[in-house]
Every structure is written in C-alpha cells, then in structure tokens.
Design a binder for these strands. Structure first.
Lengths: 253, 253
DNA sequence: CCAAAAGTGTTCATAATACACCCATGC
DNA sequence: GCATGGGTGTATTATGAACACTTTTGG
C-alpha cells in the first residue's frame, strides 16, 4: 500500500509503541477436506505434540508470522508445512475470537477450507505435531466421529473449538457446492475426468445420491456450453460403455 | 469452555509467556448500510481524529479489548459507541490481514456488515473520531463516491483498505439479499410494513427496479405462507388503494 | 372522472426432478 | 447373451420474468 504521510505523522509513527495496546495471538486453522479411497468425505487431523491439548487431535494450522506474511499466506505456509501441498485451493471460512477458546491467552483463529485430492496429500507432521491422519467423517447421537483404520476420535476429544469449526466448514461446503466450482478441486486429474467422477464428489459432499442423466444435463449446460470445460476426444474403458473424458479449460478453478 | 488439564499442563500454562510470540493488533471494522431519505444505499463513515490517516474518512470500528470480549462483542461495542445502536443485526464479512494494510504495524481487521434503518442511527463520534456522516454510495469512472449534502469523498481518499472492504461488503450484501432475510433489518418498523417498502429495499440493494406483482407473489409464497410474516388487519392510506400491512412473527430476523 | 398505487391473473422460458429406455463394452 | 455403467429423451412441476388488467382510494 502506497501511503504518503506528513512529517508530523512520521513522528507519530516513530514514537508509536505498538506494545502499549494489548494484543491477541492470531492463528490460521485449516479444514482440509478430501475423499478417501472409498469416496467418503474425510478430513485431515494432526495430533498435537505440545501443550495445550497435547496428544489431542486438532486442525492443522499455526501462528501468524507477524510482519512477514498475510493471513492467506500463513494458511498456505502451514498447509505446506503439514501436507507438502503448495498452491492448494484455500478459501477463508470464518474468524473465531472468544476470549476463552484457548487456555493460554486470547487466540484469534482465522479458519480456512481446503479441498485437496487424497493422492496429493503427503502427510508430514511439522514440529508442532507428532502425527497426522486422514479421517472419515461419521455421525452418531453424540455428534461427529472421525475414524480411519487405526483410530476413531469423538468430536468432544478434539482440541480447542475445532469440532465447531469443522461443523461450520461442512455446512459451508455443502452450501457452496451448488453455486461454486469447488468440486473440481477434488478431482484426481483436472485435465482428464469423467462426469461420473464429478458426480461422485457432489454426492459425497451433499451426502445423497444424484440422478446421473440430470447431473449430466446441468454439467453440459453450465460448464461445457459455457466453455469452462472441454470434451476430450479420448475415452476410457472399464466396465460397460466407454466413458467420455473432459478437461478444465481455465487451468485451476 | 470447560478445559480440564493435568498438573504438567498447568505448569506449562503458568510459565507460558505469551509475549514471546510476536502478535498483531486486531480490530473490527463495520460496514453500516442504511437507506437515506430518498431510499438510496448509504453507508456510515467516520472522520478519523488521530493518526494514521488523521482527518481521513474511515469505517467505524476499533481495537479488540483483549481478554474482555469476543470479536463479535467488540464489533457490537464499537457500533454502539459510534452510533448508539445496541443489538443491531451484524454479520461477519471477511478478515483482512496483509502486513502492509496499516502503516503502524500488522493490524488484522475482522470486518462486519450491519444493516440499520436510518432513523435508528444516532451519530455520536467516539474519542477516535471527530465527525460521523451517512453517505450515499455512487459510482464514476474512478470507482465509488460517498456523498451527502455537505461532502463528497472519493474511494481513494478513504483510510486504510476500507474502500476494498466496502466493495466486498456491497457484493456480499447483493448476493445475500436473494436467499437471506437481510432486507427486513432495514424496515422502519418490523411490526408494521408494506410489501412496497420491502420491495424498495430490495431494489436499492440490487440497484434495479423489480416487478411488484412478481415480488408480491414470492413474498407471499416465501414468508406469509410459511408463517414468518403475518398479515395485519390494518391498512394504510396515502395515495391510491389502501395498502395492507404485515408484521414479522419471530421478532427480529 | 382521472391519476396513482395496490392487488390479481396469464403467459412464457427456464430449471429441477423423476424416470423410461437405448448404447457399447467386457466377460 | 447379459450384466454394467454410459448416455439420450420425455413428462412433471416449480420458479422467475414480462405484462395485461382490475380495484380502491384521493383529488
């Protein structure tokens, strides 16, 4: 930002002692959604290696490096440190700031949603984390459960208010999927995908089966006719009739 | 938040020195929308009494009182201090955190949208502000203009990145108006309003004329039939045919 | 009577949903 | 051939926009 200031203001800024004002810590927390091998909605969780909530599972994220990065950059950096992913699709979700959400001190959390295909996730827990895992999201009478082949975690066992953040993220994702192009970010390969694969992603997020003919119709109307997606000459064979492949035209969504 | 911790953790928390970590300042900034006397989309701006950007116009808002309030409470408090309004409709917009958006130091801004009918706005500039005003939002080749009977302000003359925040707020408001009940918050009296008055609010926000018969149809379908709004026995006379009055059933929206 | 604003009804295009049916492949 | 998933077409209903028309008031 270009900011021209007077001599008077320069003097003010020089003697401005930022520490006069009490300040909160600021972190980013990232809700990383993916689809597991059976196309079920899943989330990345990190086992904390430090207090508070040591040994508890939590969202990936960490403190803002003040003066060195924006909060968007912080989210990207933390995501890279903990998953190896660069240039992921990230969108800001909400900012949480109750004074009691962290036992240490006031910690403002700016939360983000990331949508990343599973094969791109290379879990590499950073210094703050001992362990990382991808967990299917399930539900029972007490709320959400996060489970994989080794572990099942109750939502009440998550660190901080992260269960709440996840719940809000799921709601937002479900609402966005109808009018944003989010689903494309979960494709295995945006340069070669089938309508069925895209439909499966929508079904997983909306948690209900969709009608293939109708899905195809809106896909062709909304994406192919508008030029956002191009039909490839190639087809792919598995069982049944060979399947047409499509690719995104604009690169990333 | 109930947080039970071990003796080991207690020790950690006691020796935890929050100031080890560099921290940003956190503010809330509030985009207060209203309709002026001629039903034009307007916004509340404050003339800053202090550096930085002294004498420049800016959004109302201020620093978070760390440990004493949540960010939602901070937004409500600032709004009350600068407009006298309590319990206004506030919804979180976006959080801005570029390191260079404030010349002093890194300042994270959590922005909010407020929708307040003009007659409820009692402008009382706080200690940080010399002057407050309601400005109609106009546009020309260089972007937004904010003008009232005394002054016209170019968007480039606003403090900080507030022009950008306002632009994002307007976009969000326009998108929300179609599926959220925001418009009701701008009614002069939620217990006695006409379909025309509500339509005018929608027209102002969407900045285009709407068809009254069609507007009525969706209003009756979406609000009256569902019970959110009740038709009153009363009518009101002005020019032409007397107008039916409606009231919100659930109190505030 | 006329202007003005409220309120009603009709038409048309588009979109969401449900579902019947055909097509091309592997086995 | 036949199971399997891909792909096409049709009927139904809901929604949104455009617009003609009627109603009730004040002047």
């Amino acid at each position: 930002m270009r900011y021209q200031c007077s001599e008077e203001e320069k003097a003010f800024l020089q003697q401005y002692n930022a520490s006069l004002y009490e300040r909160p810590s600021v972190t980013t927390d990232i809700v990383v959604f993916t689809l597991d091998d059976l196309d079920r909605l899943s989330i990345l969780l990190i086992k904390r290696g430090q207090f508070p909530y040591k040994e508890k599972w939590a969202l990936p994220g960490g403190f803002l490096h003040v003066g060195k990065e924006s909060i968007d950059e912080c989210a990207n950096r933390e995501l890279k440190e903990e998953t190896g992913i660069e240039n992921a699709f990230l969108s800001q979700l909400y900012t949480f700031g109750s004074p009691d959400r962290d036992p240490r001190t006031t910690v403002i959390s700016v939360s983000y949603i990331a949508l990343i295909p599973k094969h791109r996730l290379q879990l590499c827990a950073g210094d703050d984390a001992k362990e990382a895992g991808i967990f299917q999201i399930k539900y029972d009478v007490d709320g959400m459960l996060f489970s994989n082949s080794q572990t099942t975690i109750r939502e009440s066992d998550l660190a901080f208010d992260h269960a709440n953040i996840i719940r809000i993220a799921i709601t937002r994702l479900r609402n966005r999927i109808d009018y944003e192009d989010d689903a494309f970010n979960l494709l295995k390969d945006q340069n070669e995908f089938t309508i069925s694969e895209l439909k499966k992603i929508h079904e997983t997020i909306k948690n209900k089966p969709l009608d293939l003919p109708n899905f195809r119709k809106s896909f062709l109307r909304d994406y192919v006719k508008s030029g956002k997606v191009k039909e490839l000459k190639k087809t792919i064979n598995s069982k049944g009739k060979p399947t047409k492949l499509y690719k995104l035209t604009g690169g990333d969504v």
